[in-house]
Design a binder for these strands. Structure first.
Length: 543
RNA sequence: GGUGGGUUCGUAUAACGGCUAGUACUCAAGAUUUUCAUUCUUGCAAUAGGAGUUCGAUUCUCCUACCCACUACCA
C-alpha cells in the first residue's frame, strides 16, 4: 500500500471561499489520519483570470486555520522551484510546470486519444449561436467533430501546415462513442455515464502553451502520486473524462480514488453560497478580509470578524460531516482522529450563520482569561483607555460568558471604563445607531445602540422613565452611601427598600441601562466614589 | 433542453430493514437572578409524493415532483 498523498489544488483567481477552506480541511484531515501528506498545488493555468495576491491569500488563509501543507507552496509562502531529492515533485505551481504538459498532450494525439482542433473561438461561437437559435445546444463531440476543422477531418499536409503557421489551435480529447464509463466515488458510491453525452474537451491550448484544468490535473495527480482526490461536487460531471484520461495514458492501475464533497449552500433560498449572501445577511464567506485589486471592494473575513481559527475550522468541519456521536466541539487533532469520508453526507449543506456564532461563543468561553485579556487590551487602548491588566482580566472573567467575540467586550463593559455622560429623557439619538448590517436571524438589541459611542451614550427613554423616580433615587443614594458594595443587597433588604427598583436605579446611573452586570461587580471595579459621582450626575441631568 | 447528483424538524444532522424517529442551533415557556446574560427544566417542529419488495421501509427498487451542479480554448 503506497503512502497516502492528497492535494488541495485551488486556482488563484480570487480569495479562497469558505467552501474551499473546507475542501482543504477535509483533504488535510484525511491525509493526517492516514499518516500521509497534504500537498498544496496552485492551478494557475488560466492566465486570463490570474488575480494578484490571490495565491498569498490562499496560503495565509490555510496558515491561519492551522492547515499546513507538507509539500507544495508552503505555509511560509516559499515555493520550491525545482525538483530535487527533497522535493521530487516540485514545482507546485502549474505555470512553472508548463513544459511538462505538452508532451503528454502529444502522447494522447499519437495514441489516437486526442486530436488537433483548428476552429477559432469565433467560429465555435458562431456555431454555438446558430444551434441556440434552433433551440439546440452545440456540443463538440462525435456528432459534430466530423464537420469541424481538425486533424480528423483535414488532410495530413493541411494539418501540418496549420500546426506550424497558426498559434491558436488546441488539442481536444477524442471522446469515445458508445461506452458506459463505470466509476466509483468514496462518498456517492457507484456512478455510470454514457460517453455519448460527453464532449471533446480541450486539453491543451497552443495560444498560451498551457493545458486546461483537465489535462494538468490528471498529469499532476499522476506525477505527484496522489492517492485520493477529494474535491467539490462541481467536479462530478467531469469525472468520466478524468477516468478516460487515466485510461488513455495507461495509468488506470495507479489512478487515485475520488471523493466528491457536497456543496455549501446559502442560508436561505437555493443555490450555492456566494459572496453576495454574506454581504446581504451580514456574515463573512471568506476566511480573511479581502480587498479586490481591481475594484477595490473589500469583503469581510472570519478572522477580522473576530472568529477564532479553531472555532472556524470546527464549524467548517461540521458542515457536511458528522462524527457519528453527539460531540460537536473538536480541536484540529481531534478532527484528524475522528474524521472519516464515509461520514460525509451526500447532500449540500445550508450554511447557518447563527450556528457559526454559537461555535465561536463556545470557543471564547474555553479560552483562558489571560489570553482574552491580551486580546482585549489593544481594543481598550484604541479607545484611549489605559487599564491595569489585572483589573482588565477581572472584567474579562465577568463578561466572557456574555460575549460571542472579543470585540463584544467593549460593547458589554464600556461603562466600567467610561462613565455614561449624556442623558436624554426622550428618545435615542439617531446618530448613535449601529453601522453594522442588520442580521435578520437575530434582531439587534436596541440597547446595543447605547454603547456604540460610550462618550455620548444616551440613556434609553424607557429605562429612564422606569427607573428614575425621585423617591427611589433617594433610597438608592442612601444605600450606596451607607453600604459597601458587598453589603448593598443586605442593606436594601434590611431597610425595607424595593430591591428591584433600587438596584436598577443604581444600575441606571452606573451603566446607563436597565440590564447588565451585577451592581456589586460594577462597584467593585469602578469604586464607591465613582459610583456616587455617577449617581449625583444622573440626578443633575434627570432630576 | 441534455447529463449527473441530491431530498429526515426552519437549519446542521443521527437512526445493522425493527423501541414513542434522537441530538445540536434557533424559537417559545418556566425556574434561578437586583436587571440582562449565563445555567437548569420543559415545549414547538421532520422522513417530498406515489407505487413495489418485505412480517416490518427513513433505510432497498421504480415512477413523479422539487432542488443543485455541470453543459467554455474557467477552474
Amino acid at each position: 500500500m503506497s503512502k497516502t498523498r492528497v492535494r488541495f489544488a485551488p486556482s488563484p483567481t480570487g480569495p479562497l471561499h469558505m467552501g474551499g477552506v473546507r475542501t482543504a480541511l477535509y483533504n488535510y484531515l484525511y491525509a493526517k489520519q492516514h499518516g500521509g501528506d497534504f500537498i498544496l498545488r496552485i492551478e494557475d493555468t488560466d492566465s486570463g483570470r490570474f488575480v494578484p495576491g490571490a495565491e498569498e491569500y490562499i496560503i495565509e488563509a490555510l496558515r491561519w486555520c492551522g492547515i499546513c501543507p507538507d509539500e507544495g507552496v508552503d505555509a511560509e509562502g516559499h515555493v520550491v522551484e525545482m525538483p530535487s531529492e527533497d522535493h521530487p515533485h516540485a514545482p507546485y505551481r502549474q505555470s512553472q510546470r508548463r513544459t511538462i504538459y505538452r508532451e503528454y498532450a502529444e502522447q494522447l494525439v499519437a495514441s489516437g486519444h486526442a486530436y488537433y482542433a483548428f476552429d477559432t473561438s469565433a467560429e465555435l461561437e458562431k456555431v454555438r449561436a446558430e444551434a441556440e437559435s434552433r433551440g439546440e445546444t452545440f456540443i463538440y463531440n462525435h456528432l459534430t467533430r466530423g464537420a469541424l476543422r481538425n486533424s480528423l477531418t483535414l488532410p495530413e499536409e493541411e494539418v501540418q501546415r496549420l500546426l506550424a503557421e497558426r498559434t491558436d489551435w488546441t488539442v481536444r480529447f477524442l471522446m469515445p462513442e458508445g461506452r458506459i464509463v463505470e466509476m466509483d466515488d468514496l462518498i456517492r458510491g457507484h456512478i455510470s455515464v454514457d460517453t455519448a453525452t460527453l464532449d471533446d474537451k480541450v486539453l491543451w491550448k497552443r495560444a498560451d502553451e498551457l493545458p486546461t484544468y483537465h489535462l494538468a490535473n490528471i498529469v499532476d495527480d499522476h506525477l505527484m502520486e496522489i492517492t485520493e482526490v477529494i474535491r467539490g461536487e462541481e467536479w462530478l460531471p467531469s469525472l468520466p473524462l478524468h477516468y478516460l484520461l487515466y485510461e488513455a495514458f495507461g495509468w488506470q492501475d495507479s489512478q487515485p480514488r475520488f471523493a466528491h464533497l457536497p456543496l455549501l449552500l446559502k442560508p436561505v433560498g437555493n443555490g450555492k453560497l456566494s459572496k453576495r449572501d454574506g454581504d446581504k445577511m451580514g456574515f463573512p464567506v471568506f476566511p480573511l478580509r479581502w480587498t479586490s485589486p481591481t475594484t477595490g471592494e473589500t469583503s469581510r473575513g472570519y478572522r477580522e470578524d473576530g472568529y477564532f481559527p479553531d472555532a472556524f475550522v470546527n464549524l467548517l468541519a461540521m458542515l457536511g460531516w458528522n462524527p457519528g456521536t453527539e460531540q460537536e466541539i473538536f480541536s484540529l487533532p481531534e478532527l484528524v482522529d475522528a474524521f472519516s469520508l464515509d461520514k460525509v453526507g451526500k447532500s449540500g449543506a445550508k450554511f447557518n450563520p447563527e450556528k457559526a456564532k454559537w461555535f465561536n461563543r463556545e470557543y471564547l468561553r474555553m479560552r483562558p482569561d489571560e489570553e482574552l485579556t491580551a486580546l482585549f487590551l489593544p481594543i481598550l487602548e484604541e479607545k484611549g483607555i489605559r487599564a491595569n491588566p489585572n483589573k482588565v482580566q477581572e472584567v474579562v472573567s465577568l463578561i466572557k460568558e456574555r460575549a460571542t467575540f472579543v470585540q463584544d467586550f467593549w460593547t458589554i463593559a464600556s461603562y466600567l471604563f467610561i462613565a455614561p455622560s449624556e442623558f436624554e429623557k426622550y428618545g435615542v439619538k439617531a446618530g448613535a445607531a449601529s453601522e453594522k448590517p442588520a442580521d435578520p436571524a437575530r434582531p439587534v438589541d436596541p440597547r446595543a445602540k447605547v454603547y456604540d459611542d460610550a462618550a455620548t451614550a444616551p440613556f434609553l427613554a424607557k429605562d429612564v422613565d422606569k427607573f428614575y423616580k425621585p423617591e427611589i433615587y433617594d433610597a438608592a443614594l442612601e444605600a450606596l452611601q451607607q453600604a459597601e458594595p458587598e453589603a448593598l443587597e443586605d442593606y436594601i433588604r434590611e431597610h425595607g427598600m424595593p430591591m428591584g427598583k433600587v438596584m436598577n436605579c443604581i444600575r441606571l446611573a452606573l451603566s446607563g441601562a436597565s440590564s447588565g452586570l451585577g451592581i456589586a461587580d460594577i462597584l467593585r471595579f469602578i469604586g464607591k466614589e465613582e459610583g456616587l459621582r455617577r449617581m449625583r450626575y444622573m440626578k443633575e441631568r434627570l432630576g
